[in-house]
Structures are given as C-alpha cells and as structure tokens.
Design a protein around this nucleic acid. Structure first.
Lengths: 264, 264
DNA sequence: CGATGTGTTGACCGGGTTCAAACAATGTGG
DNA sequence: CCACATTGTTTGAACCCGGTCAACACATCG
C-alpha cells in the first residue's frame, strides 16, 4: 500500500494514470497534457531550487493544525488533503480540497500561523518547505516566484468558484458541480476521470457544500437514477462518471434556463 | 465631493475618521491603531518603492473587467470596491468587498487575465501598479514582497471566512455577521463603526450572502426590531450600530448553543 | 457476536423563496 | 411645478426545497 515502485506521482487509490484503458472508456473527458505537464514541471523546479523534507501521511493524518507557527508551506506530491476552517465558537467548515501540485498554508502567511487544519484524506505525500528559505530562493529566481504567485492566485480563484457554486446552485446541482470539479482536478493531473474515488464521508462532502449528509446522499442517488453517475460495486465512495460534460448539462438544466444576472 | 484637502485617506461617504465623537459613542468597538497604522504604512512603502497611476472612480465605475489582460494590480487608497465573479452561463456572484489598503487582481495572476469584474461601490481612488514592475521591485526588496504576500494571504483568509459564514449560518445571522464584518473592516482602518453606510442594494447584499433581497430586507428589519441596528432617518442604507459586539452575540445565539462539529 | 461508523430512504416540518402589492426616493420631461 | 416612470425597499401569503428525526441496511472490527 505504499507508493514505492510505481509511477511516483500517481496517487495509489484516488485514480490511476491515464492510458489505453482510459481512452477506451468512451466519453471520458479529454486529457490535458499541457496542464499536467505544468504541474509536473513546477514540482521539478521546486525540488531543484529549494530544500524540502518529505512527509508521508495516511488518511486522517494531520499535515498541520490551525494555530501552528507558519514555519513551512507544504506542497502535495501525491494524494489529497482537506483544509478545515474553524470559528471561535466551534463551527467547522471544510474550505478547500487540495491535490497534487497544490500548496497548503498560504492563508497563514499574513498572521504567521496556520489558519486551518490540514488533514490528509487519503495516502498522501507532502513536501514541507521552509517559508523563510523559499522567500530567499525566490529573491534571485523570478520563475520560482512566479510559480508561487500563480499557486496563490489559483487558490483565490478556486475559492471564488466555490462561493459561486454555494450561492447560486441548488443542492443537487451543487453535488453535480462538486463531482465535476473533482473530475476536472484529476483531469488536470492526467488521471482518469471516468472512475473516481471520493475519500470523504457524506458528512464531509455536505459540510464542504453547505448541506446536510442526507441531502448529499439523496442528490447522489438522484444523479445515479438519471445515469449521470453509477456506484461501483466496490463501495459507495467509488463512482463511475460516464460523461463529465453531462454533469455540466445537469447544472445548467437545474438553473431553469436563467442564470440570475445582477445587472439588468 | 472630492477627497481634495481633507485627510487624504478618509473615504468621504463611507465613514468619518475616529475622533472625540467616536469615543463618546458608548459601546462602539475599540479602535485598532496598530492595524490602521499597518495599512497606512503599507501604502506609504508602496508609494515610495513602485511607480503607480492614480484613478478616481465614482460609484458604479469599473476598475477592470473580467478577461482584461492583467497588466496591473490595483490597491485601494480610499473607497469601496466589489469583485463580481461570473460563470459562463451568466450566473453572477459578488465574491468580495474591498476597502482601503486592499489589493485587487490577485485572482488573475495565474491566468494572466482578470478573473472578476471590479466595480466601485462608492467614490473611490485606486492605484494601478504594473505587475511586472512590482515583481522587479519585489526581487530586491524583501519587505515589499512580504507586504504583497501578506495581502494575498489575507485575501484567502477572508474568502474562507465568507465560506464559513455562507455554510454555517442561517439568513439572519449571516446578515448580522455581514454587518459585523463591515464594521470590523472600518475599525481596522480607524473609521467609526457606530454609523455606517452600506453603498449596496438589498439585491447586491443578498447576492453576496447567498440569499434573496427580500430575505435581506426582512433580516435587517428583524435586527432593527431587536435594537441591534437602527435605520438612520437619512435613508435605508445608513445604519446605526450601537454595539458591534451585540451582533456577535446574536450570531452565537442563533446557532442554538452548538456550532456543529465535524469530528466527534 | 454485538458495537460502531457509514450510507440510504421515508415522513414531517420550517426557513427561505416566490409571487404580489404597496410605498419611498429619485429623476425626467412637459 | 407636478405627472409620471424608474428603481429600490418593505411586508404579506403561499409554496417548496432542504433540514430534522427516525428506521433500517451494511460494512468493519473488537
């Protein structure tokens, strides 16, 4: 159950690398070699330019905890990590899902301490990078700095996509959009999107999407009934997505023709 | 109606600088001179180190449009700007509110083009800063780089606070939390928080908070009925907030004692 | 085996949306 | 100046989506 010999950047359980099989799977989303290469090259550049320590984590392990001093940023080499924000009164909110090539800890830079818990959802490897060292390395290395800024920028963009989905989509469509987003994340990384595993409970998904676990369950059942997804016989967390594009169509349809425009 | 002679960093209509009057206003939130100074000093540093062009905007003016090439980042010198995200299908979502000292455009760095529309909500001045020039300036100036990173980091933190509020609070509490957030933003900038003006329609507020304009209106009416806010006689957008802390209490109370914890 | 954690489904209820009406604020042109 | 249109706000009444509560199925694990 270790990454060991196989293709070092492929997550063992989240997905398998695209290959002949993926191409045979009919309507699977097209591969995005450009993006996948970007992530791979970024990781290589990073590995060459800045010292780091690798950490292997199993599902449930903490990468860091909110309040920890921000000595290090982390980059995911493979696997899947959630970030959980907490209010002083105890409310918890899954605010982000992060995959290979994503950075963790940007939100803590300003305060000098981590703003969220980061928890591995699956067997994952992260690279811990001293922030101070990273800054020094960036000073004399514009491409490296650009890489870091691009990662922060994407983080902001993704958060805003989440807000858009949270505020404008009804529950079923939100779940469909969540699956589409997950599949897109895998596609960007060169993994197959027709057969995916969501290593989260219904409660976690619901928390992330702003709904209750029963609603998530019902939404998934409905999507399955409409043949947009199918449950694998191996477990309720393994999904078959025959056509990612159809999920987008479902979202559109559930908006009833009109995306509410703010300005006339 | 120009900023002209008066205290150059005070927004003419959003709020008035704290002074003897603010202190006399009973339970108004305590001033935060440290934070206010940080923002002021950041703007000074920026002004010294990098060239910029000033732009004065009136309510409704566009700072930039989604899709514009990302030549410049913008920093708000005074005023108030909203950022609006749009889905391909036409859904629009107000994803951020920005005040003096905040940056605009971070979300566009990765793609090389703006990801949102940015629209002034009130008379505002922004400084346009060439991103390429900024990067060069940062290379030899660690404090400047730290300043930029801190701004990006706070942006991410704020987005996550929004998600927390969107996902965990009922409508009334969300409106209360919105007002608290607005008052906090003013307090951080050394402005009075007992008398505030929200230069947005109910529809805009509702869009930002993920609810309908009628719900916003009802929530405000209820908050007024409970004496947590009072409408000024000058208009429905001018609010008197006798005690910002009471808004926090209202949020807590509306959670019914328990902030739903995800882990046992 | 029972115990525990997870997922599904049904019945009911309530908060928020929808639809509608009325009012307020502002501006426009005669 | 007033009649009128336009935009924004408030409030009511009915409806419905999603939450709540509950029962049950199905794993895994001691």
């Amino acid at each position: 159950m270790f990454p060991s010999a196989a293709s070092p950047a492929a997550c063992p359980t989240l997905g398998t690398p695209r290959g002949a099989r993926a191409r045979a799977a009919g309507a699977a989303a097209p591969a995005r070699p450009a993006l996948a290469e970007r992530i791979g090259r970024s990781l290589e550049l990073l590995q060459r330019q800045v010292p780091m320590t690798r950490r292997l984590l199993r599902a449930g392990d903490l990468v860091y905890r909110a309040g920890d001093a921000l000595d290090c940023l982390h980059v995911i080499h493979f696997g899947c990590v959630k970030t959980v924000n907490m209010a002083p009164d105890g409310r918890e909110q899954v605010v982000g899902l992060h995959f290979k090539g994503d950075w963790l800890g940007f939100d803590g830079i300003a305060a000098g301490q981590q703003g969220c818990d980061a928890v591995a959802l699956d067997l994952s490897e992260v690279w811990a990078i001293s922030y101070a060292t990273l800054l020094k390395a960036c000073a004399g290395d514009p491409p490296l700095l650009a890489l870091v800024h691009a990662a922060m920028s994407r983080e902001i963009s993704r958060d805003r996509e989440s807000m858009l989905s949270l505020c404008t989509l009804p529950a079923d469509a939100r779940v469909a959009d969540f699956l589409r987003g997950w599949a897109d994340a895998l596609a960007e990384r060169g993994l197959r999107t027709d057969q995916i595993t969501i290593p989260m409970t219904r409660a976690e998904i619901g928390n992330y999407l702003g709904m209750k676990l029963e609603t998530v369950s019902r939404a998934l059942s409905r999507l399955a009934r409409e043949k947009l997804i199918a449950f694998s016989d191996t477990g309720r967390r393994d999904l078959h997505i025959p056509d990612v594009g159809a999920l987008v169509g479902f979202v559109q349809r559930s908006l009833g023709g009109e995306g509410a425009t703010l300005v006339h």
